[in-house]
Design a protein around this nucleic acid. Structure first.
Length: 256
DNA sequence: ATGACTTTCACCGAAAGA
């Protein structure tokens, strides 16, 4: 089973790229972030045409997440992260597909920091970690896939110099991610490639794709039982080099 | 310190992204 996460940066504007990638990569499950569309304008017909069922939690202009499943419709479990009071952002959706619990999450960026946006990021992260803990208690196969907006270590970025004040590298952000892993989750890309620099995002600015000045911020976390079945994990880097590409590349795992 | 690039909405500039 192949499960992917892909921050599309606008699903309608990105639709040709998304459909090409689905055809080329053939994921069984695709978790999407930043669909940037209201629920009414989600391109369901095109997704169906590609052979996928879908559930989504949209929001006009910003945020928005979805879960696609090949030849199946994901069975929705949640369409928002529990514990949110006055949280109007569409950043979380969770479903069951083929016996696996799958979450598609879009963790807040948090810039500028310090400030209310960074406070929101850390609060959202804390809520997410609490929910993740409750998922582990279910003792079921779970994949937490998405754009975490965290560069876990200095090994996950080309160079820290331009990013030292960025919310993605702050000690608080990294501590929250480390605490999540410590619950028992496996960072699939890092588990499969412990000694390789791997990136999932290259900013549109400053020629960062041609320079391979990337960051690893899209992650797939596996529950302990699933981690034992990890066969492969990687990034579809070539998608980032296409015309009208998202600034993120699809990232995936294969579970045997 | 700022802006560079891209998407969205909506009306050509603003907001947000990371």
């Amino acid at each position: 089973m192949k499960i992917a996460t892909y921050n599309v940066n606008g699903i309608n504007g990105r639709l040709p790229r998304l459909l090409e990638w689905l055809e080329e990569s053939q994921p069984d499950i695709a978790c999407l972030q930043e669909i940037k569309t209201s629920n009414e304008t989600f391109p369901l017909e095109a997704i169906h045409g590609a052979g996928y069922g879908a559930i989504w939690s949209g929001q006009k202009s910003y945020n928005g997440v979805a879960i696609l499943a090949r030849d199946a419709t994901p069975v929705e479990r949640l369409r928002e992260l529990p514990g949110g009071v006055d949280d109007t952002h569409s950043r979380y959706i969770e479903a069951e597909v083929d016996g696996v619990v799958v979450a598609s999450l879009y963790l807040p960026n948090g810039n500028p920091q310090p400030g209310p946006r960074f406070d929101y990021k850390l609060a959202w992260f804390e809520r997410f970690n609490q929910h993740a803990k409750s998922l582990l208690k279910e003792k079921r196969p779970v994949v937490l896939a998405g754009d975490y907006n965290v560069v876990p270590t200095d090994f996950d970025i080309y160079d820290t110099r331009s990013w030292l004040n960025d919310a993605l590298l702050q000690p608080e952000s990294r501590a929250a991610y480390a605490a999540l892993l410590k619950q028992g989750w496996t960072d699939a890309i890092r588990a499969k490639h412990p000694d390789e620099r791997i990136y999932t995002f290259w900013d549109y600015l400053r020629n960062r794709w041609p320079r391979n000045a990337g960051l690893r911020i899209d992650h797939l976390l596996l529950s302990p039982d699933l981690a034992a079945h990890l066969v492969d994990a990687n990034v579809d880097r070539e998608q980032r080099g296409k015309e009208k590409a998202s600034d993120h590349a699809p990232t995936w795992v294969v579970l045997g």
